[in-house]
């Protein structure tokens, strides 16, 4: 199975931070966004760490991505989709698929033996594209320590 990243939502760590601040702030979005810009990536990392620690993974659902999966059989994809209903798959042709998911589902796939192999391929793509270095370190840190 080959996984390639087609698209990810822009500035994932900041988007997750926006969702977290939305829950606890009465300010309009423009003010939350400029406050987050001012405080910078260290603060986004702090908020993300807090979400992971509190197991408030809902905020991760706003970081979304679409992948091209090549060389995957219907059974293989079917098993993933059945186990993880928020993972959406569309067969393009033969063994080629479009798959969309959010980063909460990615974390859940990573933590589940049924999804770990697929999650590793996705995380490696995210690493390669340097889309979300803070998120990858916080969510999949064991991979970094192990290598």
């Amino acid at each position: 199975m080959k996984v390639s990243l087609i698209w990810t939502s822009p500035r994932p760590e900041k988007t997750i931070a926006v969702a977290m601040r939305r829950c606890y702030s009465t300010k309009p979005i423009e003010e939350i966004e400029s406050e987050l810009e001012q405080k910078g990536a260290e603060y986004w990392k702090y908020l993300l760490g807090k979400a992971m620690q509190d197991k408030s993974l809902d905020v991760l659902e706003h970081f979304t991505m679409t992948l091209l999966v090549e060389g995957a059989g219907e059974t293989e994809v079917g098993n993933l989709v059945r186990g993880f209903p928020y993972l959406r798959a569309t067969q393009l042709k033969d063994s080629d698929w479009l798959l969309s998911l959010n980063s909460r589902t990615l974390v859940e796939l990573w933590r589940d033996p049924r999804g770990k192999g697929f999650a590793q391929l996705v995380v490696s793509e995210l690493d390669g594209a340097n889309v979300c270095p803070i998120f990858n370190e916080m969510a999949f840190g064991e991979r970094i320590r192990a290598s």
């Binding site: 939502s9 091209l68 569309t90 393009l92 969309s100």
Partner: peptide, 23 residues
């Protein structure tokens, strides 16, 4: 970005097929 992948794979653009992938 999605349409480029469809073109590369020789698959016709079908809005119905992309509904799950546009967020």
């Amino acid at each position: 970005a999605l349409k480029r992948v469809l073109a590369q794979k020789g698959v016709a653009f079908d809005p119905e097929a992309l509904m799950d992938h546009v967020v």
